[in-house]
């Protein structure tokens, strides 16, 4: 049985979906914290304060997880027992890895802002394509429940998303990459 404390979507009173409005999520987050934050219990007994501490920690973690699309997606599939953060799994399609390698090399060799900006928009659009595909696959995956066939497809797309997100890290575009 999933309770509100185990399911971050339930905690915020939201459906299990990728389509979450950040403003709405933030508003619900603030409302929950207004109720449970330890500061509301400063004069309460030590046990009440301890309880508030646990509640508030949970709510903070839930908000941080759902706030960003990638961690939201990873969390969503984890509710169905799919773990996309396994660091031992480095098996990716060869063409995908080659493309990654090419981008990394191009970034290291880029010595002006124009080249970097062009690369950034290229990688960013590749990322957006993966995000779009992953979001659609996730919707089907959730609709089918844990019994569905989509789990491998979702897994592969999320793994690509994770790689591309890492490549998008601001330090890769700062122009002082360590060679």
């Amino acid at each position: 049985m999933n309770t509100a404390a185990d399911d971050y979507f339930l905690l915020f009173g939201l459906e299990r979906t990728m389509a979450i409005e950040l403003a709405e999520l933030t508003q619900r987050y603030h409302r929950l914290q207004s109720e449970f934050h330890p500061d509301r219990f400063a004069g309460a007994t030590s046990l009440q304060r301890q309880a508030a501490l646990q509640h508030a920690s949970r709510i903070n973690d839930a908000y941080a997880t759902l706030k960003k699309p990638l961690s939201r997606a990873a969390y969503l599939v984890s509710l169905y027992g799919v773990d996309v953060h396994t660091e031992t799994d480095t098996a990716m399609p060869v063409d995908f890895l080659m493309q990654q390698l090419e981008w990394r090399e191009a970034l290291e060799e880029a010595d002006d802002d124009t080249t970097r900006a062009a690369l950034r928009s290229e990688i960013s659009s590749a990322r957006d394509t993966v995000v779009g595909a992953a979001t659609a696959a996730l919707a089907k995956f959730v609709a089918a429940g844990s019994e569905g066939q989509e789990s491998q497809e979702v897994y592969d797309l999320l793994r690509r998303w994770i790689y591309l997100e890492k490549l998008m890290a601001p330090e890769n575009f700062s122009g002082n990459l360590a060679k």
């Binding site: 309770t3 509100a4 009173g13 929950l32 646990q54 509640h55």
Partner: peptide, 14 residues
Amino acid sequence: RMNADIQRAIAGKK
């Protein structure tokens, strides 16, 4: 109890 507690708070929110 904590789970029940949060559940109740959310029910209120809904």
